[in-house]
Write a protein that binds this DNA or RNA. Structure first.
Lengths: 138, 138
DNA sequence: AACAGTAATGAGAATGATTATCATCTTATT
DNA sequence: AATAAGATGATAATCATTCTCATTACTGTT
């Protein structure tokens, strides 16, 4: 993890942001997360490492990291936003409507088609995301 | 509009819901809307017709109509949800990051690809939506 | 058309996620 | 180490949305 942490500190500096304990903690927790935690979940996980961290700082850190492009916010319909490290490959999500589980999917063909369609309308994509609510077929 | 209104009243009954002034008003406003209004905007537009309608009822009506499948909720990142009449053809949205304008797009090829991908994972789609944030190319 | 039963409404309180405030503490720079 | 600008913790404030509850309005039945 050491290399990644250094890398992350550099990314913060490049964005003109200070490298703080709290930001490093939140980021490392998010790096280790296999799921897509929300702010509350991040608070409790970070508190296992540093019990002084506040909810306000978690939110502030998340929004600062998002602006810097280091993480991505996942706005869901009826629950708090979830976060993930900005993935190397652009991808979308399936939310299992029964369990709430989030599954990552990606399809280059779809991305290409979307990009072409948006370009035809005279736009350039800033960000895009597909959210599919689905249920397991028995 | 008369035929549509009758049709809508039937849809409410079919869903086991009462046909009320407020529901009819909200629905007709939404039918006439060329944009994708949020709850507040719907409140002020409905009040031009019936100034007794309350914000709570707008929200209740919206959620009831959504459950009945008559309208669709559009969850955006950092602003209140927007609503639209359930479109005959499944479609997605581009949000212009500069103006906030919402543009509808659709592409059957993409829909097909998505459905196939989700099926392969053993899921069936309940609903799906793509939100693209984009800026106009100058 | 009046009735009864029950769902829907209006007004405002309550909730829950997120953001703002401000005094204090840290980081980066000299 | 000293400084100045930024970041933090604690908590208050905000904003969208939901809930509560007394009152009102649909709907099916006489």
């Amino acid at each position: 993890m050491c290399a990644e942490v250094t890398e992350f500190a550099r990314a913060l500096k490049d964005a003109g942001l200070r490298v703080t304990q709290q930001r490093m903690t939140v980021m490392s927790i998010l790096m280790d997360a296999q799921d897509h935690p929300n702010a509350d979940e991040l608070l409790s996980r970070t508190r296992a490492v540093d019990d002084s961290i506040s909810l306000a700082t978690v939110y502030r850190t998340l929004s600062v990291l998002e602006e810097a492009g280091l993480i991505q916010k996942l706005a869901l319909e009826n629950e708090p936003a979830r976060y993930e490290i900005t993935p190397t490959a652009e991808h979308d999500h399936i939310v299992d409507v029964e369990t709430g589980e989030v599954i990552e999917i990606s399809n280059e063909e779809i991305n290409r088609l979307r990009r072409a369609m948006v370009e035809e309308l005279g736009y350039e994509i800033v960000s895009q995301h597909t959210l599919i609510r689905a249920r397991k077929v028995k």
